[in-house]
Design a protein around this nucleic acid. Structure first.
Lengths: 144, 144
DNA sequence: ACCATCATGTTATAAAATCACCCATGGCAA
DNA sequence: TTGCCATGGGTGATTTTATAACATGATGGT
């Protein structure tokens, strides 16, 4: 969290109240949150209540590497290692909906090579894995 | 294409007219198509004109490995190597919007191992790479 | 022929995302 | 100071994507 603030200052970008609060909200849970869910929270705290408010803040965070978008869930999650310039893989538990961020450098290499062979130049990469986390695999396969 | 028909017969599933036509539509282009775009085509050919018609056909194709969903584009693309039980990576050109399917077994291994280490059991995996295809990188970086 | 099952069609609605416009702030140059 | 303009935020409306719920029709086994 503090890392994020530092990083923003360092990059010379403005981590305004809405943006900061949005990041905090994401950090409060390890589950990915939908934009409208975030919006609800923001609105309850006196910020704007229309979709663009949430989308703009979230887009900003993603743009600056402070959060990630989880395509499969149409949701967002705070980045756990900001500033690390990573191509993380997301481990999405289909039972409890928690999202873990795994850094798997080998993926980047493998994809880079496969793409390079066909002349494709890689810019961004998303890896999302659906399955069961250890807790859910072990016991109650239910959503909390 | 013929492969798909064979595969369906072999699996004992019904490749009905809508489903077959949907697959053909996807195969006619190498670009991923949105559900509503497919729906338009289907409707113009006398099939139903409401969203569920397209979504059901597309879901069926995805379910049976004859097509893939490209999350990043909210779109669908025909599978080029059906029956191959693969976890393909998609190379999405942000200029011409074409989608190439690359089989990169190393990814599966790397992710499987990283996930296994944390007790996560993998069920499905999607890898999507955004960038420029060779043609677009070379010349006109414009959408057709 | 009968029934269970699967497939299709339709209406309606939900969920996710974007557009277009306006106003406030805050830095900066004249 | 004043005027300007770039950036960010607020709001209403709309577009795009996806599903729910229900009725009808086809298919295949017995």
């Amino acid at each position: 969290m503090q890392a994020a603030v530092d990083l923003a200052r360092q990059q010379g970008v403005r981590l305004t109240p809405v943006r900061l609060r949005t990041l905090e909200i994401l950090l409060e849970t390890h589950q990915a949150m939908g934009a409208y869910e975030v919006l609800e929270r923001l609105a309850a705290e006196g910020f704007g209540s229309q979709p663009p408010v949430a989308y703009r803040a979230l887009d900003f965070l993603v743009q600056h590497g402070l959060a990630h978008r989880v395509q499969r869930l149409n949701a967002f999650a705070a980045c756990l290692t900001p500033g690390h310039d990573h191509a993380p893989a997301f481990l999405i538990c289909r039972s409890c909906n928690k999202v873990a961020e795994a850094d798997v450098p080998a993926i980047r290499d493998a994809v880079g090579q496969a793409a390079g062979d066909s002349g494709f130049s890689v810019e961004r990469m998303t890896v999302e894995v659906l399955g069961l986390c250890d807790r859910c695999a072990a016991g109650a396969e239910v959503r909390p």
